[in-house]
Design a protein around this nucleic acid. Structure first.
Lengths: 253, 253
DNA sequence: CTATGTGAACTGATTCACAGCA
DNA sequence: TGCTGTGAATCAGTTCACATAG
């Protein structure tokens, strides 16, 4: 993903518009992990704007975002040099540059498929529209739900995914169905031209290369936490048996 | 491998119970990224058991889990060598070893704090109890909700977090409150002795070192998708201007 | 004299490729 | 022969440390 490994691939030469090309080039080069953090920085910075803060140092911003300052500066360097040495960053400037890089200057309409407990919660979640992700369509397989408004939007039947998504220019599909239905729903979204999918169903979706899938898997999150509980318990047991430092065993935190 | 860099740290010498010590040592050495995938393998394998599959090759399992076979084998090697060369893995054996490593042999009681849209959905989510994570307590700040059963469990007031969590041996706290309340709730959970937190609120929680936090941030997920939409659009623009391959520009998928 | 921006070094994760065992 | 298990090689991500701009 990152870019420019090896020789003989990805050479940029004399593009028509140098400025556009630069943004393009930068965007291509940002590590995936950094993109996720940029979104976090953006939220923290938005809070700063609300508080009337106009300037912020890498130290302050990084601690508010829960990372170290070197990482923050490196992340910001991927999108350009917008700080002032000896001073820090202008909050508004940073906000607008991060928004541009994250593509938040356009609206991204969202469709939620599967109006069960989670689908209801998502349809009513205020955080989406307020951040430029209006929920434009809802779908469910249950015909009794068709036409029923949820969070102000009437539910459509999943058979209408293709037409409704095209009509309302949906660019992000959210799958909140039971696992058995997820792949079929995904296929419909993809053939409706949706290229980004956020999947809450506990299944691994198969999609073509041009579709981006992100998954939120609660069971996996819980199991990762469980692993850490277990590891901690094991370490504690180790301590009791061997004692810290005894036999040369060092327990790292 | 994770452990044992440098000299002078993490040396294991003659522990009392060699088998326990081995599990402990392995668990310590598993990369975080591999832990997340083990949880996915486990789910796929559980499905295989239901279908009556008894043996599976790394190729089959990896494609069902959406990773390549080398990564799968490496991941499994972190937990031990339980395959048969020339044949594959015994599904049940693998399930039980992954469960052991992930600490799923114990029950982990869950408390959900914040019984709004999302909290309701989580309290009713069948995926938790069925996977060994019983929801044992619900909390909200609204006194009108106190005593009201949600998903079969009466809601308690957040003032009772400490006593109720201790009583019901809650080991995982789920924060589904508005962002303003999240840090305070987190602090209460931590002082109640909860060491694992799953945070749905869009804030960076500050916790002591001994507490493990995982976050699910819908806005961040949407923004990552948005970034990819934008990048794709930019690349398409680049293609239109320069044409694929013209000027030596190579667009990678 | 301060805090950014960034090569260089390092740590961690993924992939390769093949030795070794059923 | 076929498939696992794993060192070695590669690649990605993080941290260090300092030159540099204000």
């Amino acid at each position: 993903m990152a870019a420019q490994r090896g020789e003989g691939d990805a050479v940029v030469a004399t593009p028509r518009n140098p400025a556009d090309a630069e943004v393009r080039e930068r965007a291509r080069a940002i590590p995936e992990a950094a993109v996720a953090r940029l979104a976090v920085y953006l939220r923290v910075l938005s809070g700063m704007v609300d508080q009337g803060v106009t300037t912020i140092s890498s130290e302050e911003l990084s601690s508010a975002a829960g990372v170290n300052s070197a990482k923050l500066r490196k992340d910001l360097s991927y999108i350009g040099s917008y700080g002032t040495r000896g001073v820090g960053y202008d909050v508004e400037v940073l906000v607008s540059h991060i928004e541009r890089i994250l593509g938040l200057t356009r609206k991204h309409s969202v469709a939620v498929v599967g109006i069960g407990n989670l689908g209801h919660a998502l349809a009513n979640y205020g955080g989406f529209p307020s951040r430029g992700f209006p929920v434009a369509a809802l779908f469910d397989i249950d015909p009794d739900l068709t036409g029923v408004p949820v969070g102000g939007i009437p539910v459509n039947h999943i058979d209408d995914i293709a037409t409704v998504c095209a009509e309302r220019e949906v660019s992000i599909g959210v799958i909140a169905t039971p696992p058995q239905a997820a792949q079929a729903v995904c296929d419909r979204l993809v053939s409706a031209g949706v290229q980004c999918i956020l999947n809450f169903a506990p299944v691994v979706l198969q999609v073509p290369d041009n579709v981006e899938v992100r998954k939120v898997d609660l069971a996996v999150e819980m199991q990762i936490l469980s692993f850490h509980v277990a590891r901690r318990a094991d370490e504690a047991a180790g301590e009791v048996v061997n004692g810290v430092g005894v036999d040369g065993v060092v327990i790292r935190p």
